[in-house]
Amino acid sequence: MFRYIVRRLVTMVPMMVVISILCFTVIKLQPGDFTTQFLTDPRITPEQVAQIRERLGLDQPPAIQYLTWVKGILTRGDFGYSFAYKRPVQELIWERMGWTVAVAGATIIFSWAVAIPIGIYSATHKYSFVDYLLTFIGFIGVSIPSFFLALVLMYLSLSLGGTAVGGLFSQQYIGAPWSWGRLLDLLRHLWIPIIAIGLSGTAGLIRLMRGSLLDVLGTQYITTAKGKGLSQRVVIYKHAVRNAINPLISVFGMQLPELISGTIIASIVLNLPTMGPFFYDALINSDQYLVMTFLMLSAFLMLIGNLLADILLALTDPRIRYE
């Protein structure tokens, strides 16, 4: 197992290199660069724009720009400089990490906590009215875009006299020290993003849990377990669910990058101080090193997530051995 993990970690290095080259190529395929915005500003002459491009290194060939960036990471741990913010990118990303992970984490916990019990209930009460109802809600959850759901929820909240529209706090609590009032205010705001962003994931998980459990319930060993007189509870929770959960663990690994990237449009609509809108602005502005660092972080989390999922699978399923 240990050797397996080391091997996986080592293969991540070439993988990250390939991903970074791909990302950089895609960024460079975008027409224009950071200085394009200056061309429409009458205060700045084209000579000055050329000067800025030279200073930012944008006049160099893309390959050189890429290698300079990689060199900075390897020699100084420097992920580059944000053209828009005039600050090192890792600082900027770090500043936004807290709320991003908090909101995404709460959303993921919500969707798992809701989806697994519902999925189990649906599967064990197959074709009942409640199953149909939950399945129906699940389909709605999958099909409604989260930004739209966010708008609807905000509209409902506003028309019912609520004042918690957008953001995580009321104005007076933004940046205030923690207190009961602030926590309460956060909860009053947080339910909208959690439902809006979490619902589609929840619905997907419900479908997955239900399908996977139904498969397992149809297998012979479950029939055997039932036949030897085990209680329904033991059959389902000890035998069926434990086996049915495997596909969900793989999904869990895939969710790790969502901690930081999440749903961009929903975050803009919900006015969340998270990485999504920040990343979106960086893309629009061609703030290339910020975009690169963000994409690399996302890719890294994806690889780590997959590794974690594989390790978890090995731990939960004795049939899986990596040697």
Partner: peptide
Amino acid sequence: LVYLVVQDDQVMLAQFRSGE
């Protein structure tokens, strides 16, 4: 004097309506 960062103009409008 307080400036709230609100990227979406519909949300800004909603916050204005709610008195924020």
